[in-house]
Structures are given as C-alpha cells and as structure tokens.
Design a protein around this nucleic acid. Structure first.
Lengths: 192, 192
DNA sequence: AGCTAACGTTAACAAAAGATAAGAAAATGG
DNA sequence: CCATTTTCTTATCTTTTGTTAACGTTAGCT
C-alpha cells in the first residue's frame, strides 16, 4: 500500500522497519476524483499528501481569478505548505487535475511523530532543504528569464506536464495571461 | 561576541548552555569591508553567515549583467544556499553592500554538529521551513503582482531597505530594468 | 581638488504583454 | 449523441516594459 511512499522517503533517509511501522500508523490511503478540492482558500491546512498517481495544482486568488502557483505530479509531497507551516488560513488553494491516489497524513500527527522518531527531523530537514532550493530556482527564473524562455525551459524539462495540464493554468504559472501564452506559442512554433 | 546570534536562534529553539558552547566552537567573528565578495559565482559555497551588522546581496549573472536575487540585513542568515545545500558550483554570488560584522561558520562543520547535537535538526528544520515559506511568498508576488505593486509592497514593508541599497539593484530584484523602475517611481510620486 | 566611474532620470522608439471581444475547437455531462 | 461549457486562438487597441542613448549628479579615488 505505502511502498511507493517509502521508495520516495528512501531518497532522503532510510527508515528502519520499526520507524516505518510508526509512520504507517499515521498514513491513510485515499482516492479522490478529478477537480477535487483538497484545500480551499481561507481554510487552515491540516493534511499533507503524497501523490501515488495523478496530478494536482496549487493556486492563488487574484481579484477573483485563479493564478496557478505550482503543479504536483506523481511521487511528490503536496500540501498548502504556507498554511500548514504557519497555521494561518491558507492563501493557497489545492485541487486535483486528474483522479488521484493519495497517501494522506495529518500534519500535526506528523509533527508529533518527530518526538517519537527523532531521525524524522533529518528527513524533514532534507525535504525542506530541497523544496527551498527549488523555490529559489523558481524565483531566479522569474527575475532572470522572459516568459518565452520560461515556457521553453518547461517544454524541455517537463514536456509531459504540458499535455497533462490546461494551457491557461500553465500561463498563470508562468506569470502571464492565457492570451499571451497563446501568442508566445505561435511565435515559437511558427518560427520553424 | 555571539549573543546577537543566540538571540536569533532563541526564536527557533532554545539551546542549552552546553549546546551553545558546542556551537560556539565552530563560530568565528569576522568584519569585512563594503563590496566584499563573500561568494563568487562558480565557487562552491562552504561558509554560512549571520549578519550582526551591515547589509549584503545575493545576485545572479545573466549575460554579463548582475541581477539581484535577494537582500540580507541584520539578524539574517546568509549564504549561497543553493550551492551549500547541493554542493554544486554556485550560480549565486554574494557581496556586502556595507561594511559588515559577521558570525561565520563552515557549513560542513555545522552539518557534522547535527550528530553531536541532535536538537540542531529541529533548529535547522524550523529555519528551512521559514525560508521555504518566504521563498513561496516571493514566487507568489512575482506571478500575482505587477512590478509597480511589488515596489509599493517593498516601500510599505521595508522602507529602510530602499535607502540602503542602490536603486538599480532594487530594480533587478523586482524583475525589471533600472530604467523601468525610474519610470514607475515617477508614476507613483508624481501622482500625489 | 580634480578626474573618473557609477548612478539616476529622461526621451524616443521598438517589442511585448494586458484587456477585451469574438469565434473555432474540444471536452464534459446528461 | 447532442447541448453546454470550457478552452484555445486570433484580432484590435492600450499600457507597460525593454533598449539605447544622452545628460546631470553624485561618489569614490589618487
């Protein structure tokens, strides 16, 4: 049931069988349909998810418009991290883009588990370090690259993503409007 | 010597005297002049800094131009985090903008200390969580807000910063050119 | 003090993105 | 399978930003 999740954790820290079993006690397997709201804006996020299968997105609300902040694919941890880490109402919403198989756990149970399994601190530290470095790279791309360059980067690095998510969500993720992304695509693909 | 640093760490975790003394063993106090390069692009970052006094910036190189990625002020941890955490040559450069009083420690010594002081994992985890949340907020601002809004936000939240750093560095930090920031400022301040 | 380099502003033009609307294509849901 | 959204494209117009260059000011250096 959770072997995919533990393959993921192995990349950061190899838990003992005893530690795994303590972790399993707080894990729940859950399937949700497409367009399922895992976190609504304004709620306090209490759960963290690991995606066994499927795809989801995090988004913000800007004057009634949904602006995508991130896409989550298989084998990624997913949550309203800002809310879960600060215990404040979430500015971020989360919804599935495909039917999803999720490993779910309550963040407070996870935090408490750090007392029982001190090595969990190492895992969480490494995970956060990786997420932090990635967030820095996203910031760098936003100030260094043009929207066109960002689209081309995505096209090269995650070509499969482009076929799994609607283009207008991709546009706001790149920091531009859907109309603008359509023009950029025309500029790129007409050129050759 | 290091009391300011421990006031900072107290916000995350209260270390025992014994733990503090073990930490102090790897801390060094260092003063550096203005424009001092703490990390050159291409080098592997080995040190982490805490700013007692002064101001520095992190920057990227885009086709020979320096694009500011972040400003660091008093009571902040400062490093080429991307490089130090991945052990890869740094895409990020760091230089002081004012004469600085720094608390310096080697990152590898800090990492090793986690074995000796397991509670250090908690401190580092909390610090990384905070940095991650902040980086997320920066990403959100870059995709949600216009350059003008970002400047106004900065103007309200960190008015002192604007007088401590050159305007062209602020411009690239906001993701625009110095010329454009000059126009935005005119739009804003002429309007009233 | 005087020289030089760095900095901020402004102007003129080009390029790109936003806003809005209209229409075609595709997906969705009974 | 049809009707209804949703999504994507295209066009027009406006606004903003980028680019380049010129100019005055300031700051730093010797």
């Amino acid at each position: 049931m959770f072997q995919q999740f533990f393959q993921f954790t192995d990349r950061y820290l190899r838990f003992s069988e005893k530690e795994k079993s303590a972790l399993e006690d707080i894990l729940i397997f859950r399937e949700v349909p497409k367009k399922y709201p895992l976190l609504k804006i304004g709620e306090i996020a209490r759960e963290v998810y690991f995606i066994n299968k499927g795809c989801a997105r995090m988004f913000y609300d800007k004057d009634g418009e949904e602006i995508t902040g991130f896409f989550f694919l298989e084998n990624m941890m997913l949550s309203g991290f800002e809310s879960v880490l600060t215990r404040q109402p979430s500015q971020q919403g989360i919804e599935t883009l495909e039917p999803c198989e999720l490993v779910v756990f309550s963040f407070s149970a996870f935090e408490e588990l750090h007392e029982k399994i001190p090595r969990l601190n190492i895992f969480t530290r490494k995970l956060l370090a990786e997420r932090f470095v990635f967030a820095q790279k996203v910031v760098a791309s936003l100030i260094l690259d043009s929207p066109e360059e960002r689209y081309l980067n995505l096209f090269q690095r995650q070509p499969k993503l482009l076929n799994r998510v609607p283009q207008h969500m991709l546009a706001t993720y790149l920091g531009i409007t859907p109309v603008s992304l359509s023009r950029i695509r025309k500029r790129i693909f007409d050129g050759k």
